[in-house]
């Protein structure tokens, strides 16, 4: 079936270097450095990445970081809590604009 997103394309991520090797090299070096153990553990970073993957709704990232989080020893409960954090922020970002709506309604209403 023809789809925009093909699971096998995730394995070709590094192929983006074909059109611009210099920027790809810089990006992947940066990417690797970001996910190294630091002030945050590699496991914490994996859970953050999983949450962000759901926020940006990237199927490649969701597959990659679901797998990565398992490999980092995260439980299913922790992974779902990370998705709920993403959901709460997404939902909250809509809801907080309700204040703007209320401001406008109050301004123009008697």
């Amino acid at each position: 079936m023809e789809t925009y997103y093909k699971p096998e394309d995730l394995k070709k991520f590094a192929d983006v270097a074909e059109f611009d090797g210099d920027l790809a090299k810089k990006f992947f070096e940066y990417y690797g450095a970001v996910f190294e153990e630091g002030a945050l553990t590699a496991r914490e970073k994996s859970l953050i990445a999983l949450a962000v993957a759901h926020t940006v709704q990237c199927p490649y990232c969701i597959d990659a970081y679901s797998h990565d989080a398992l490999e980092k020893g995260c439980s299913e409960e922790q992974m779902m809590e990370a998705v709920h954090v993403s959901t709460a922020i997404r939902g909250g970002s809509s809801l907080v604009h309700g204040v703007q709506m209320m401001n406008h309604v109050k301004k123009v209403s008697m």
């Binding site: 553990t41 590699a42 398992l70 490999e71 980092k72 020893g73």
Partner: peptide, 10 residues
């Protein structure tokens, strides 16, 4: 499952 083990120490 079908994934590799993470860092042993962690």
């Amino acid at each position: 499952g079908a994934f590799l083990p993470g860092p042993q120490h962690s």
